[in-house]
Design a binder for these strands. Structure first.
Lengths: 372, 372
DNA sequence: CTGAAAGCGCTTACAG
DNA sequence: CTGAAAGCGCTTACAG
């Protein structure tokens, strides 16, 4: 019954380390019999300590120690109906706001005994649907998603499995999903107003709306709304829609926009990565920022503060989103009420890449408008 | 027994979509009775189709369709002893090489029916240990880790659970773990030889070895080895060790090194992020790159190709590492043999941030050395 | 507060 | 090729 059939593996073995390598993993039954209690009591001593007499509890806990017992979570999940698992599907880990959000989510989940199951959709709704279905089959206790638009079957499927759901990076949902995030539209609206006050009237936008992306769409809408109030409309050829928000995509889009519309003074990007690319391309073409043109980003990733000039952008509180998503989802899983809408601040971060519009540009404006 | 107790939810309901929202999730037993076969046969028709008579198989599969049956993976795991789950713990998602690696890992796993359980350790061995233990309790079928140095109890624990293990971002392990990655030491050795051939003799290093990090340590060693062959030694104050490989950390380290050692002509960073910071700081201080000094990175993340000048660096094939890690681990789980060491190419990418050492610098060299 | 027993939803020898 | 039954390792009413 003891390890006497094994020679002492090493003379340094004296702490509570895993039992002999050959030993088989202990199960609750082993704990129970070693502690001379029933299975039920052993289970209770571990999971609801207060409900069992101290003396017995101690005996069980000691047995747990001795056997290096760790519960089989699959069995636990099957019998209790709860897997203590949460699924998250994000568009990509390549964008720091998602990487940071996922990190915070994992920490928040882990702190409360939940395990994270992660997948990324690459902005593809079909992939996203499959990931979600797979997680549901897996038995996740809840789901955190991104945004508010999904493949048509997604929500019915989740409801069918009766699993709570939380969405993130947006602050409201039209589909009745609790949301934790920012108001993307309002953020770019504010950003654009700031540019208008600086005197800008000629705008162009680089948006990663090439793939379904309601956050970027909302950002684009916020821009259009703000300039519309000043009577400015943006012809379609002043908006470049890219699929992946990369630096290179930003660089190319900027090059194209600048060539077609040399009179534009303000280039708004719906993502920092694209703005970094635009900035790099402007430098390469000898265009001075912010003297000749202004460029803005969105996200406030680390590099945004380190470019030359540093980028004016909007801060997305990614870690906070992840932390709150974990908290709200767990509360939801455990039957507590949570707010349907949690709006976090999306601060406008003004740095060196934006400035007052240069006087001469105003002259060009009318002629360009005529061309369009 | 049928859904006649519910009014038709909507007139558009005709495809194979989830059953009425109120319907309870079907289990294998429901499938079996609908198909008029035993539980065992239903199970076989789904999991080992070839072993069951075609007519019956069809009947079962039709029942699966009708009931929108999806197996309970927890139950499956408990009874089969395999969870079809793989755990991965990486230092952080903040570095693109890990984000990309995890993405590829997840894709590779998903393609073969495995689910990814993810955690990050923030370079903390104690956290890593806890994550691993939690995953093992969880019942993962295998583990992918990073590097070759772990908290002392990690390997015994994994062995105790008899779970296969693969490590990544290094190409060999002294602990007998199958490894998939690059030869970090050799990569910086090559990089340094290249700088030596350019005429550099005064070096400084910014390394993220502030936290345990055998990859960065190996990179540092490669540098020291190469210069040692030329009879050059690096005094400790020419090496700045930072904990987190951030842009800001690189900036500060560069500032400090440059102030203390103005004669240094080559600054090697063990990470692109730090090199980007160093580059930015050099620009701010009016130091020309590569005319006055050379700066190198490691990783070849996207931004490395977009700085001005673009960064000379080493390419880490992160996606390939993730893909191979998935493949090898699954093969290992399924009892197939795999190579113990898989070395991927770590190409030296020469770009604009490095150049021949400037003549005048050679003059300064001796006096500076005297100062040190 | 404790125990005997049923049950979670599957898989898989073991017989037929 | 198919079925009846045991079993995976826990939890949890239900009695005492």
């Amino acid at each position: 019954m003891d390890k006497s059939d094994k020679k002492a593996p090493s003379p340094t073995k004296k702490q509570t380390e895993p039992p002999a390598p050959g030993a088989v993993r202990a199960k609750l039954e082993d704990v129970a019999s070693l502690a001379k209690v029933s299975l039920a009591t052993a289970s209770r001593a571990i999971n609801q300590p207060d409900i069992v007499r101290p003396a017995i509890r101690e005996r069980v806990l000691r047995a747990v120690e001795m056997l290096a017992y760790s519960p089989d979570r699959m069995a636990k999940a099957l019998s209790s109906g709860r897997s203590h698992t949460v699924g998250a599907v994000v568009p990509t880990l390549g964008n720091a706001i998602f990487a940071d959000g996922v990190e915070a989510l994992e920490v928040g989940l882990g702190a409360r005994g939940y395990t994270l199951i992660l997948a990324h959709s690459q902005y593809d709704p079909t992939r996203e649907f499959r990931q979600i279905r797979s997680m549901l089959e897996y038995g996740v206790d809840g789901l955190v998603l991104v945004g508010d638009s999904f493949a048509p079957d997604v929500l019915p499927l989740i409801r069918h499995h009766r699993r709570p759901l939380v969405t993130s990076y947006v602050c409201t949902s039209r589909q009745g999903i609790p949301a934790i995030g920012i108001d993307n539209r309002r953020a770019t609206y504010g950003m654009t107003r700031y540019l208008l006050e600086l005197g800008h009237r000629e705008f162009a936008v680089i948006a990663n709306t090439g793939m379904p992306n309601d956050r970027s769409q909302a950002r684009l809408d916020g821009i259009l709304e703000a300039i519309a109030e000043e009577g400015i409309r943006l012809p379609p050829d002043r908006i470049v829609e890219v699929a992946q928000p990369s630096i290179v995509a930003g660089r190319e889009a900027f090059h194209q926009l600048r060539a077609a519309h040399p009179g534009v003074t303000a280039f708004l990007c719906t993502t920092d990565a694209m703005a970094v690319g635009a900035l790099a391309e402007a430098r390469r073409e000898g265009i001075r920022v912010p003297e000749d043109i202004s460029i803005t980003g969105f996200d406030d990733v680390e590099i945004a503060g380190e470019t030359d000039p540093a980028l004016t952008t909007v801060r997305v509180p990614a870690a906070e989103i992840g932390t709150l998503a974990a908290d709200h989802l767990i509360r939801c899983i455990e039957g507590e009420p949570i707010p349907m809408s949690t709006q976090l601040e999306a601060a406008l971060i003004v740095r060196g890449s934006t400035g007052p519009v240069a006087a001469p540009v105003l002259r060009k404006r009318r002629s360009r408008a005529a061309v369009a």
